[in-house]
Simulated scan of single mutants.
Amino acid sequence: MERSALPLDRLDLALLTALTEHPRAGDLELSRLTKVARATVQSRLRRLQEAGVIADWDPSIDVAAAGFPVQAFVTLEIAQGALDEVSQDLASIPQVLEAYVTTGSFDVLCRVATQSHPELQATLVNIDKSPSVVRSTSVMVLSVLVEPRVLPLLASAEPAPSRRAPAYRKH
């Protein structure tokens, strides 16, 4: 079931910014950083989590630093109606970090990571063994230009009106 978008106000953005900049901060520290009551922080975080804006509390893991420096993006053309099968096949390959259904000249975009070039080759062969994969194309990642990020996007949107009188004051 798809959730409807939650309009974010300035306090939501301030909390998300504080969490991104201080991921180990507790409610009390977030309260100090955003200059709102601890109970307000707790209720807003609960609301953001229930709405799916805060998707998880997992640490961000740098796969290259964890020993998997060889990364590639792989595009797949799949057999008509084989989305469930290819999803299961990709999920069974640990080197597949993520996969997205797309529009355009290919059907699926995957990101894979391995410890070495030979392991990358073996992973690509493994992906191609799926009976659902008609054709695959891969491109190697040489370096990262822009790290994964969300805050600039959130900050670029017009904030929703605050739900109550000044719960958040700019510094």
Rank of each mutant, 00 (worst) to 15 (best):
M1P: 03
E2M: 10
E2Q: 13
E2G: 10
R3T: 14
R3I: 11
S4R: 13
A5M: 15
L6E: 10
R10P: 00
L11M: 06
D12M: 05
L13G: 03
L13C: 10
L13W: 06
L13T: 15
A14S: 08
A14Q: 05
L15F: 07
L15E: 00
L15K: 01
L16K: 02
T17G: 08
L19H: 02
L19M: 14
L19D: 02
T20S: 15
H22R: 09
G26H: 06
D27F: 11
E29F: 03
S31C: 04
L33E: 03
T34M: 05
K35Y: 06
A37R: 06
A37Q: 12
A37I: 01
A39F: 03
T40K: 05
Q42S: 14
S43K: 08
R44M: 05
L45D: 04
R47T: 13
L48N: 06
Q49P: 02
E50S: 15
A55K: 09
A55W: 07
D56V: 02
W57E: 10
D58S: 12
P59T: 13
P59S: 11
I61M: 09
I61R: 12
D62E: 14
D62M: 13
D62F: 10
V63I: 12
A66R: 11
A66M: 12
F68A: 10
P69C: 07
Q71P: 02
Q71N: 08
F73Y: 14
F73Q: 07
T75W: 09
T75L: 10
L76Y: 01
A82E: 11
D84K: 13
E85Y: 05
V86Y: 00
V86G: 01
V86K: 01
V86E: 01
Q88A: 13
D89L: 00
L90T: 01
S92K: 07
I93M: 05
I93P: 00
P94M: 03
E98Q: 15
E98R: 14
E98K: 11
A99T: 01
A99K: 00
A99G: 07
V101E: 07
V108H: 01
L109W: 02
V112H: 00
T114R: 01
Q115F: 07
Q115M: 10
Q115I: 09
S116V: 05
S116P: 03
E119Y: 06
E119S: 11
E119T: 09
E119M: 11
L120A: 05
L120S: 05
A122K: 10
T123P: 06
S130V: 02
S132K: 02
R135L: 08
S138A: 15
L142G: 12
S143E: 15
L145D: 12
L145F: 08
P148F: 11
R149H: 13
V150W: 04
V150L: 15
L151Q: 14
L154G: 12
A155L: 12
S156H: 08
P159R: 05
A160P: 02
A160G: 05
P161T: 08
P161W: 08
P161H: 06
P161K: 09
S162F: 06
S162D: 15
R163C: 04
R164P: 00
A165D: 07
R169T: 14
K170Q: 14
